[in-house]
């Protein structure tokens, strides 16, 4: 589904380049559930953002769904990411001024989906995540776990093929974290959503089908897990 080849990201600081990602090559197939691990500052978020086309690499080749992303214009890239990807953040990142319902609805608006259809889709996902009762509340009125649930619902509303999650459980207690991970697993297995997540927790990483270890901007190891 996606392929990164000899991809680098660096920042210019006082004449010399500081590499955040250094010659990274990575292929992810459809249906995979990849966990990215590594110490703080190793470039995990940067990698995820580049995959999600929120950030651009300094060098290298990037392919997604058969398109050469590094050759695309801004607008085309954003159209691509819009139709294929959903994002979940550690800090939830809900829009404070919108209710739960409206937060979940927003991506659909930008995809020019009709009102009646939006209503059905949002109602459906609210139901699936068991948050129908919360739909008119504002983010500040929810617990962290609930906010992350809304965040995931929002990421999934447009039926993405690829879900990108940067420390989705980082701000949650372990019970809430487990619930989210179970949800991811189910999405991966039952709906066939490809998932790439960044995590610091070995336990959460184990939910995935492959664990990639990043160190100083390089892939240090890649380990395929065999779940029974």
């Amino acid at each position: 589904m996606l392929s990164l080849q000899h991809l680098s990201k660096y920042y210019q600081s006082g004449g010399n380049k500081t590499f955040v990602l250094n010659d990274v090559s990575l292929d992810v197939d459809e249906g995979e559930f990849v966990s990215i691990m590594g110490p703080s500052g190793s470039g995990k978020s940067t990698l995820l953002n580049i995959i999600g086309m929120l950030d651009e690499p300094s060098e290298g080749y990037q392919y997604f769904a058969g398109e050469a992303v590094h050759l695309l214009k801004d607008k085309q890239r954003s159209a691509l990411s819009r139709t294929y990807m959903g994002y979940v953040f550690q800090a939830y990142h809900l829009i404070d001024e919108l209710t739960v319902y409206e937060n979940i609805e927003t991506p659909l608006i930008y995809q020019n989906i009709k009102g009646s259809e939006r209503k059905a889709l949002v109602a459906d996902i609210l139901d699936r995540f068991n948050i129908v009762g919360k739909k008119d509340l504002f983010p500040s009125q929810l617990s962290g776990g609930q906010q992350q649930l809304v965040g995931i619902a929002r990421a999934l509303i447009a039926k993405p093929k690829l879900l990108l999650a940067d420390e989705p459980t980082g701000n949650l207690n372990s019970k809430q974290g487990d619930e989210i991970m179970e949800l991811f697993l189910k999405l991966n297995k039952e709906d066939g959503v490809t998932i790439i997540q960044v995590t610091h927790s070995e336990k959460n990483a184990e939910y995935g089908s492959r664990i990639i270890n990043l160190l100083d901007g390089k892939i240090e190891s890649s380990r395929v897990l065999n779940h029974q």
Binding site: S81, Y87, H93, D96, E97, T106, P107, Y110, Q111, R154
Partner: peptide
């Protein structure tokens, strides 16, 4: 800025 960033992530184009 957070709202703007988010909306972009959620698929908003500049003219939106």
């Amino acid at each position: 800025s957070k709202e703007v960033g988010l909306r972009k992530v959620l698929g908003a184009l500049r003219n939106h």
